[in-house]
Design a protein around this nucleic acid. Sequence first.
DNA 1: TTGACATATTCCAATATAGGAATATGATCT
DNA 2: AGATCATATTCCTATATTGGAATATGTCAA
Lengths: 113, 113
Amino acid sequence: MARAAATADVFNAIAEPRRRAILDVLIGGEKAVGTIVDDLSLSQPQVSKHLRVLSEVGLVRSRADGRRRLYSVEPERLQPFHEWLAKYEQALNARLDRMDDYLKELQRQGDPQ
Amino acid sequence: MARAAATADVFNAIAEPRRRAILDVLIGGEKAVGTIVDDLSLSQPQVSKHLRVLSEVGLVRSRADGRRRLYSVEPERLQPFHEWLAKYEQALNARLDRMDDYLKELQRQGDPQ
DNA sequence: TTGACATATTCCAATATAGGAATATGATCT
DNA sequence: AGATCATATTCCTATATTGGAATATGTCAA
């Protein structure tokens, strides 16, 4: 079997660095395809294809504006990331706590009171 | 050109669902390969290969324990992901604020004081 | 309608992948 | 040393991908 499709879920969609770059550009607000092309120095078809992927997983929306097409980021769709990451923050905090305890213990022992 | 390597960065490493599953299992603490195999009903080579990828991007560590090998999660390495996500929280909050202002404005106008 | 501009899609080649099967490596015990 | 258990690696196939070039679609203006 091959790797999962880029459109399989948000995790696969943001694995591609240029797609993250596009999202980063869109944080500034709604932008036309051509603007993204200029900002990132990517080819127009490349940008359109990446936008399609982002669109399929719901990370961006688009609306027509004359002959242009304005894309904007849909930050609500980042929810899965938040949820997933939250689990590891707990693990991380627990670890930091243990580290803290350890350091305190060292300090206590080193202290010839 | 082909897709970026799974070992290219954390983003690519966690794009694969089974790798996320493995990380999830490891949140519970250090575990041997065989334990992961049992917990997730994956093949042993599959798990070893995924662990290798996770290891290469630093998301897991391993230490020898007799003939077993214990893996643990290294949540600090999710920092890039965390930072990336933080940018979008700001964008999201800004958007919610604007929405809030808009709603208040509507309310104010609708209020025949 | 014709032309110009903006974006999307198709076709192609090269590549990295995930999983399965078989096998190699490493460690422990007798 | 030999057997066994635990894990890692190699070889293979099928597949999805990214980027480039060319082209199609869609929209506005004269």
